[in-house]
Design a protein around this nucleic acid. Structure first.
Length: 460
DNA sequence: CAGCGCTACCACACCCC
DNA sequence: GGTGTGGTAGCG
C-alpha cells in the first residue's frame, strides 16, 4: 500500500516537471491554418441572429450550422465556421453527431426534397419506386419550365429510413443552375406538385383509385386541375407572391401538356389521413437541414447514401470521397459567378412588353417570382477551379475578396437593379486538402476540442 | 438566461341576409 | 352563416 502511494507520487512529480519544462500555452485557440495564415474560425452562439451577424462581419467564407444539444426539446446552438474546418472535426463521427446546415434566407441554393412516409400506415408503398417516379416528374418539370436537363444521375439520394419510417433527402445537382433561395425552391415544388393536391383534398378513398385508373381521361374530367405548367399571374399586391390564375388554368389548351399522374405521391399518415410523400414544410427561412452522416438527437439513424443512389461526386486527387459527398450534400453550397443581364431570357423576362403580356410561352423562362431560377455562368478564366466538380487546380483562381458575401436583397433582385451576382465561394480544394492531409500532425489528439468548446459555451 | 419559423386551429368580433 | 383577426399549440 505504502509503496503504491510512493510510486503514484513520483509519477505526479515527474509529470509536474514535464509541464514545467514545456508549459501549456495560456489560451488554447483551435487552428487549422499554419501560424502565418489567418486564424481559423469556430464560434458558437445561443441565438441564430447573433450567428448570422457574426457571419456578416466575417470576411472568411463561413457558414452557420445548428447543433442539437438537448434530448427532447430540439434546442439548438449555432456554430459559425468554414466547411473545411467543420469537416475536419466532423469526419471522425465521434463528436458533432447531430448537426444541421442552416439554409440562410436569401441565399442561393440547390433544389432539395424531404421525403417520408410511415411504413405501417402504407404497407403497399414502394419507397424506392416513389423516389424514382418523383425524380422523373421533377426532371420533366425542369425541362418543361426552364429547359434544364437532368437525370437520376444528377440527384444525390440520401437515406435515413428506419423500421417504421421511410425517409430520404434528395438533392439535385443541376448543372449551372440554382435557385434564388429556398423560398423559391418551395414555390417551384408546390407548383410542380399542384396536380397532386386535389388527390388529398378529399377524404373519399375512391378518388385516388379513380385517378389511378382513369388517368388517360383526366383532361376530360370537369375538375380541371391547375396543371403545374400553366401561366401565373400576380396577386392583388402586384407584389412578390404569385398565384395561379384559375381562368387561365381552365382554358383548354393553356397547358403545355396534360396533367401528370401524381397519385404515387399520396400516402397515409398514422391517423389514416391522406398526405403527400413530399414534405412541403421544409422550405422556410433559415431551415435546418440535417447534415450528411448526422442523426437527430435521441435517434441513431444518420443520413447515409441510399442503396439506389446514382449520383457520385467527381473523383478528386486532393479531396477525399467522403468530403466530396459532404460538400455535395450541402444545400446552400453553391458558387459560381452569374451575370444575368447578358442572358437573353433574362432580358426578355424584364422587358416591359413581355411582362405586360404575362410571359407568353415563347418568353423563357418563367419570372423569377414563381420559383426558379437562373443560370449560373462561369467566368472562363477560372472555370476549372470554380466548378463544383473541378478536377484540377487553376493558378488563376480569383482572390477570395472577389467573391462577395451573399446575394442582393429581394428588392434588388425583383427590380433587376443589380444583375451581377458573385456567389459565395465555398469548397476550396486547397483548404480541403490541407484538412485532409497535413493538419493532423498539428492537432493530433485534439479531436475532442469542438465539443469541449461547446460545453464551455453552455456553462457560461 | 438562452432556438426558429411557420401553419393549422380556435375563439371571438363583426356583418349581412 | 360568412368573413376577418388575433393568439397559440405544435410541427418540421
Amino acid at each position: 500500500m505504502e509503496r503504491k502511494w510512493e510510486a503514484k507520487l513520483k509519477q505526479i512529480e515527474e509529470r509536474a516537471a514535464c509541464y514545467e519544462r514545456k508549459p501549456l500555452s495560456s489560451v488554447y485557440r483551435p487552428r487549422l491554418s499554419k501560424p502565418e495564415e489567418p486564424p481559423s474560425i469556430w464560434k458558437l452562439f445561443h441565438r441564430q441572429t447573433e450567428a448570422f451577424n457574426f457571419v456578416k462581419s466575417c470576411k472568411e467564407d463561413v457558414h452557420v450550422f445548428a447543433l442539437e444539444y438537448k434530448v427532447g426539446d430540439g434546442q439548438r446552438i449555432y456554430l459559425v465556421t468554414t466547411y473545411t474546418q467543420l469537416w475536419f472535426y466532423y469526419k471522425s463521427r465521434k463528436n458533432l453527431l447531430h448537426c444541421y446546415e442552416v439554409i440562410p434566407e436569401n441565399a442561393v441554393c440547390k433544389l432539395y426534397f424531404d421525403l417520408e412516409f410511415n411504413k405501417h400506415a402504407n404497407p403497399e408503398a414502394d419507397g424506392k419506386k416513389m423516389v424514382a417516379l418523383l425524380i422523373e416528374h421533377v426532371c420533366k418539370a425542369l425541362q418543361e419550365l426552364y429547359r434544364v436537363n437532368c437525370s437520376a444521375e444528377d440527384v444525390f439520394n440520401l437515406d435515413s429510413s428506419t423500421e417504421e419510417k421511410f425517409s430520404r433527402h434528395l438533392i439535385f445537382q443541376l448543372h449551372d443552375v440554382a435557385f434564388k433561395d429556398n423560398i423559391h425552391v418551395g414555390n417551384f415544388v408546390r407548383k410542380i406538385l399542384q396536380p397532386a393536391f386535389h388527390l388529398i383534398a378529399s377524404e373519399d378513398d375512391s378518388i385516388s383509385e379513380k385517378t389511378g385508373h382513369g388517368f388517360s381521361h383526366f383532361s376530360e374530367t370537369p375538375i380541371k386541375q391547375g396543371i403545374s405548367f400553366g401561366k401565373m399571374s400576380p396577386d392583388q399586391d402586384g407584389g412578390e407572391s404569385w398565384t395561379l390564375n384559375s381562368e387561365e388554368l381552365e382554358r383548354p389548351g393553356s397547358a403545355k401538356q396534360s396533367s401528370p399522374d401524381l397519385s404515387f405521391l399520396v400516402v397515409r399518415n398514422n391517423t389514416g389521413e391522406k398526405q403527400l410523400f413530399v414534405d412541403l414544410g421544409v422550405y422556410t427561412r433559415n431551415r435546418n437541414f440535417r447534415l450528411y452522416k448526422s442523426s437527430k438527437i435521441g435517434k441513431h439513424v444518420a443520413l447515409e447514401i441510399a442503396e439506389d443512389n446514382k449520383f457520385f461526386p467527381k473523383h478528386s486527387e486532393t479531396v477525399s470521397e467522403e468530403n466530396q459527398c459532404f460538400l455535395s450534400s450541402l444545400v446552400s453550397n453553391v458558387r459560381i459567378l452569374v451575370d444575368l443581364k447578358n442572358e437573353v431570357w433574362y432580358q426578355k423576362c424584364h422587358d416591359p412588353v413581355c411582362k405586360a403580356e404575362n410571359f407568353k410561352s415563347d418568353c423563357f423562362p418563367l419570372p423569377a417570382e414563381v420559383g426558379l431560377l437562373f443560370l449560373l455562368k462561369e467566368e472562363e478564366e477560372f472555370t476549372a477551379t470554380e466548378t463544383m466538380n473541378s478536377e484540377t487546380e487553376n493558378p488563376h483562381k480569383p482572390p477570395s475578396s472577389m467573391l462577395s458575401k451573399g446575394v442582393a436583397s429581394d428588392a434588388d433582385w425583383d427590380n433587376g437593379i443589380d444583375d451581377t451576382y458573385f456567389l459565395e465561394a465555398t469548397e476550396d480544394a486547397e483548404l480541403a486538402e490541407a484538412a485532409e492531409n497535413g493538419l493532423l500532425s498539428y492537432y493530433s489528439g485534439v479531436d475532442e476540442i469542438p465539443d469541449e468548446l461547446i460545453l464551455q459555451v453552455l456553462q457560461e
